[in-house]
Nucleic acid binder design. Sequence first.
DNA 1: TCAAAAGTGTTAATAGTACACCCATGA
DNA 2: TCATGGGTGTACTATTAACACTTTTGA
Lengths: 211, 211
Amino acid sequence: MTAYKSYPKFFVSVDCAIFGFKDGHLNVLIHQRPYEPAKGELSLIGGFVQTDESVDASAKRILKEFTGLDNVYMQQLATYGEIERDPGERVISIVYYALINVDNYDERLSKIHNAKWVDIDNLPTLCFDHNDMVQKARRVISETIKNEPIGSNLMPQYFTLSLLQSLYESILGTPIDKRNFRRSISEKDYIQATNLIDRTSRRGATLYKFK
Amino acid sequence: MTAYKSYPKFFVSVDCAIFGFKDGHLNVLIHQRPYEPAKGELSLIGGFVQTDESVDASAKRILKEFTGLDNVYMQQLATYGEIERDPGERVISIVYYALINVDNYDERLSKIHNAKWVDIDNLPTLCFDHNDMVQKARRVISETIKNEPIGSNLMPQYFTLSLLQSLYESILGTPIDKRNFRRSISEKDYIQATNLIDRTSRRGATLYKFK
DNA sequence: TCAAAAGTGTTAATAGTACACCCATGA
DNA sequence: TCATGGGTGTACTATTAACACTTTTGA
């Protein structure tokens, strides 16, 4: 029926750059590779595509295994296909990035998988081409956050404007003027004030939520 | 050495959305699929990744086979991984888009491969998910041309400003004011006037080239 | 002489950037 | 009382959008 028989087949993996906002910085979830090659080296979260799932479904499954989360903002980033990118065997890797609220993240799973959050500005050396993947994801997120309210995926339900600003600064990697930031956010109409007050600062700050 | 043995392998193809500027419109190169499934249906240019080439190299090889061209502007677009996207067998497809100067294109190869140019605004139904691929590529090209001189890949060596404007209009799918277009192009400093005059219009128009 | 495409500036609106002080409160 | 982070407005600059007439020349 098909004429494909003579063509080669490949292992296809999915790697996920999972981002969370933690301690005022954009963080990415990494773990120690549990198998050879590069066993014990630091790696993005990943796994192999199975025959009974689409590539998108594979990415969702892997994310759920490592975080316990469903219904997460996740986008395909790029495919890495160099012959020797994995020194063990040839693996073509399709990379996704996800934005999660770290409050919802299941800490028990992080224990099981040896996973930890690392500040994107102090990223250790990861195995293979995984550092490239993270940097590329960050560039895409930087562009996206200028036009879309993707911060809603990273913020807690209620947050102060200062915290939201620190998210933007951490993603963009540049300081932002407080007054300009507040004006541009209020013009965009993504968020709304609540009656709640954050009392961790002396004066207290209005808590906002995404619409 | 590796723990991958138990994972499945997949056919991996590359599909190329090859764009050219022809008769005042953005066109894409399609052909009739030469093998089952969907033999005879219209399709983007494609082929299978081989073991001795990276995915990028595979895309370049396929482009060269169908157009005779090397050193072409080509970018990875996305990977399509639905289980049933190819009704014959499961194939994961990595899509690239390329921008070529149709004057350099080898017409003999188009005969051999049954290839033809079609206006992107009158795209016929293509096999599988190929129409989605073309639309996605067009969106990316639209965004890119606002900030980068990628028109240089599509234009003939010498061109009038009216022709360049029609390229932008065809890519963006919207009319552009002539004076605003000329100002914005000249501010960007991508192109330079030559001494040559295009004589196909009565008055004659200055010919430009990309720097 | 006229049809057809080439060429050319100004104004208004919008978006983005720079910048500094007072306020409320808990320690 | 004072240190800390919360909150606020204005002026300038750059970018984008809207808009119409004159020029050249081959048929």
